[in-house]
């Protein structure tokens, strides 16, 4: 995580520092937003909180290691292949496991995702070992640091992350608003019964939501891995993005962006001015504050609270 945020500023230049902090916030917010939209997509479509999202994102990132050796010399092809594999993995997870949990109580489904997360972690260690890996090297990509106006610096992977997040959100908004499948997905989230009456296959829509969620999460995971290396602690980043999604409102994509910005700003500023050790707890402090003040989130729907 700390590596994903661009290099610390040089010198004591105050303005340079604040610009650097702003850049760090933007990068971290992009990470949280890109991961967080996965939580929102699944929750909004199927009312399941996917606590295995961090693990699924990690699996997609590890798949980059596999595709890197397959497509050596074509980093973009490897990247795309791995992201698409993530989509398949997500959909497969729904079809194999979570489909059986539909109609169960909400908490049983959440606990199933927790169990799934543990299973995936075990599998990742079994397949790729517990050592830190560098998919950037495998792809032959050096991740140069870029200078920004104002003296701030950002790594190429972090810059790619910000752009990817913007593109992913633009794509998701367009998909949900203008495409048939997107509208079906929204419909299924609002009233699954009626959606089925209109001929929509709910399992297909849910599988698509899981696939897209793993796809976007995988994009984040791969870019983080390119920036800072790849090991099991990536799961923690996935989990820290969850407060961002909830602060914004679990059923709102706009909310996920707002939540990500709030959480990232709080985290970067508190780390910088108070204590670096706070990094892993700040998102959850923000989350607790939000749950006490406005549990349904900034942009969420209030009725969500009564769904038990």
């Amino acid at each position: 995580m700390r590596g994903a945020v661009a290099a610390q500023p040089r010198g004591n230049h105050r303005r340079g520092l604040s610009i650097q902090l702003a850049v760090n916030i933007a990068v971290l917010a992009s990470i949280y937003a890109l991961i967080g939209c996965g939580y929102v997509l699944i929750y909004r479509t199927s009312r399941v909180l996917n606590l295995a999202h961090g693990e699924l994102m990690m699996v997609a990132a590890y798949l980059l290691l596999a595709t890197a050796s397959l497509f050596s010399g074509h980093p973009l092809a490897a990247f795309a292949a791995s992201a698409l594999l993530g989509l398949v993995v997500g959909a497969a997870v729904y079809l194999v496991l979570m489909r059986k949990m539909t109609g169960e109580r909400v908490l049983a489904a959440v606990l199933a995702t927790v169990a799934l997360g543990i299973l995936l972690r075990g599998i990742v260690v079994l397949v790729w070992s517990a050592q830190q890996q560098y998919p950037g090297q495998a792809l032959g990509w050096s991740n140069p640091a870029l200078a920004l106006p104002g003296g701030a610096r950002i790594s190429a992977a972090a810059a790619a992350l910000v752009l990817t997040t913007a593109a992913a959100y633009a794509g998701l908004f367009a998909f949900l608003r203008y495409t048939r499948w997107g509208i079906r997905m929204r419909a299924a989230g609002q009233n699954p019964l009626l959606a089925a009456q209109r001929g929509i296959r709910l399992h297909g829509v849910y599988a698509l939501a899981w696939g897209l969620s793993t796809f976007t999460g995988g994009l984040a995971g791969m870019l983080i891995a390119l920036d800072a290396g790849l090991e099991q602690t990536m799961v923690v980043i996935g989990l820290k993005a969850f407060p961002a999604a909830l602060v914004g409102g679990l059923d709102s994509l706009v909310g996920a962006i707002a939540g990500a910005l709030i959480v990232a700003a709080a985290e970067v500023l508190l780390i910088h001015y108070v204590n670096p050790l706070l990094a892993d707890v700040v998102p959850f402090l923000v989350l607790i504050a939000m749950l006490l003040a406005r549990p349904w989130g900034l942009f969420g729907t209030r009725e969500e609270l009564d769904r038990v």
Partner: peptide
């Protein structure tokens, strides 16, 4: 790792 994976599997 086997322990982890198996535990997740049993829970599921």
């Amino acid at each position: 790792a086997v322990n982890y994976a198996a535990f997740g599997l049993v829970m599921v």
